[in-house]
Design a binder for these strands. Structure first.
Length: 419
RNA sequence: GGAGGCGUCGCCUAGUCCGGUCUAUGGCGCCCGCCUGCUAAGCGGGUUGAGGGUCAAACCUCUCGCGGGUUCAAAUCCCGCCGCCUCCGCCA
């Protein structure tokens, strides 16, 4: 949700932001009108209510006929107050419904356009020179690391088992990510993965992409698609202290996605699955610090990619592909030898105050409180195994283990096919 | 799953039975000022948050876990929900 003050004071900025996203800027005028209407209804209600209050004070003192007269008057006034309140509530609701429509104000410098209009910022690492390329699933099966048929048997399509070195690789990768996060000052957190509707909605995941989210009807709980959700909810309705700098959490969780709109995409292997694990960085900071914090999150992501020796590129995601809550988003995409393309492995978003406003996360200032900024970024996920297997494959189907992961794989430098 | 108890402005707490004088009491902590060689103590004032309003104030509305209801009037009565605690049952 946007700050209404921004809309009042600088509607043109919101119009420009809407256009950059490729969305309608008419909404801005509608918002201003709704805001004005709400203000009128509210002041009418407040005036009536004040009158009612003073009348209520006179009643217990009055006697006999005078009291009866006051009671009659009060009763009439009570009806008016109720009507005025209903009108004010309605105006408020209308405003809120409009206010959730526009996405976050796009940060300056974001490329405009849609999904394909991203800007490549840099390429890092070297693509492997391979004569014969096996894809991650073939390699995973040779290593007895990935078992898709049994995943499908037990749970359906887009489910899988990680077995043997596959399970070790996953645990190692996530542990490495956690260790690095802790070194960088993050507090490690294992989060709930079932959350209430307010939290899911407050984080912005029940908007356009509600279809992506699993919902447990019997309990009215949602399965999170990322620990960003419970980490954003962690300080919901709290006033936090940012005097000593950003508050940083590294969340470890299972993630669940319905992948409802992606039939036929990435159907092979474990690139796009319903359940995976992720270590997610999450920062709370002051709005004016959020740009710097965003760059730091990106740096930490790149350090992690360097640690597992994967070639990647960094892209600056275009305005139309930001999703509603991000003001800017950088993705790191790993090279995928089997497909000759890049695949998203991290994504870091600066949500500025967009999420925190809905969730009521503020800090104290000299005159009152104000909404903080939230940011998130991926540190490692199950999908990384795809990039690790493919980029480190050897001609015989074995896989080189990046040095940083060796401690988690019994010191092994090479994973070899099981015969 | 069963039974009972609880939720008040940072923390603790009075108020809830019996609706109006609650504009929510007191203490602790914190902030400002006064006083006192320093410290401690003492004295006076302030101290939930949100939305309006103002140059700034004053001031107005909402806020006693959340939502609804009854009433001229709700912290107080009624209903629903959420959370916490105790005991019992079940369970990794």
């Amino acid at each position: 949700m946007l700050d209404l003050r921004v809309i009042r004071e600088d509607p043109d900025r919101l119009r420009a932001s809407q256009r950059a996203r490729g969305e309608d800027d008419q909404i801005v005028s509608q918002l201003l009108a709704a805001d004005e209407a709400r203000r009128e209804q509210l002041s009418r209600f407040e005036a009536l209510r004040a009158e009612q209050k003073s009348l209520s004070k006179q009643i217990p003192k009055a006697q006999g006929e005078q009291k009866q007269a006051l009671l009659g008057k009060a009763k009439q006034l009570a009806d008016e107050v109720k009507q005025a309140q209903a009108a004010a509530d309605e105006a408020q609701r209308e405003l809120e419904q409009l206010a959730i429509v526009p996405g976050n104000l796009v940060e300056e410098g974001v490329p405009s356009g849609g999904e394909e209009n991203f800007v490549e910022l840099r390429h890092v690492g070297h693509k492997p020179q391979l004569e014969k390329v096996r894809d991650h699933l073939e390699l995973g099966e040779l290593l007895r690391a990935i078992d898709v048929p049994r995943g499908a048997k037990v749970s359906g399509s887009r489910f899988y088992y990680l077995t043997g070195v596959g399970a070790q690789l996953e645990l190692g990768l996530l542990n490495l990510a956690m260790s690095k996060a802790i070194e960088n000052g993050f507090t490690p957190v294992i989060t709930p993965t079932l959350v209430r509707p307010e939290i899911m909605g407050g984080t912005g995941f029940l908007g356009a992409h509600a279809e992506e989210v699993y919902w447990l009807e019997a309990d009215d709980l949602y399965l999170v698609g990322t620990s960003e959700v419970p980490l954003a909810g962690y300080h919901a309705d709290e006033i936090i202290d940012l005097a000593d700098g950003p508050i940083r959490y590294a969340g470890w969780s299972a993630c669940y996605r319905r992948e409802a709109g992606s039939h036929g995409r990435d159907t092979r292997g474990i690139i796009r699955v319903h359940q995976f694990h992720k270590v997610e960085m999450f920062s709370y900071c002051r709005e004016e610090d959020s740009r710097d914090e965003h760059r730091r999150l990106l740096t930490w992501e790149e350090e992690m990619l360097a640690a597992v020796e994967i070639p990647y590129r960094v892209i600056d995601v275009a305005a139309g592909d930001l999703g509603s809550s991000a003001a800017r988003k950088f993705d790191c995409e790993a090279w995928l030898p089997s497909q000759g393309r890049y695949m998203e492995v991290t994504s870091t978003s600066n949500c500025t105050t967009f999420q925190a406003r809905r969730l009521g996360i503020r800090e104290r200032t000299d005159n009152g409180t104000r909404t903080v900024a939230t940011l998130n970024g991926t540190l490692a996920t199950t999908r990384w195994i795809v990039a690790i297997l493919e980029n480190h494959q050897q001609p015989d189907g074995s896989v080189h283990v990046p040095e940083a992961l060796r401690p988690y794989l019994g010191g092994r430098r090479l994973l070899e096919p099981v015969t």
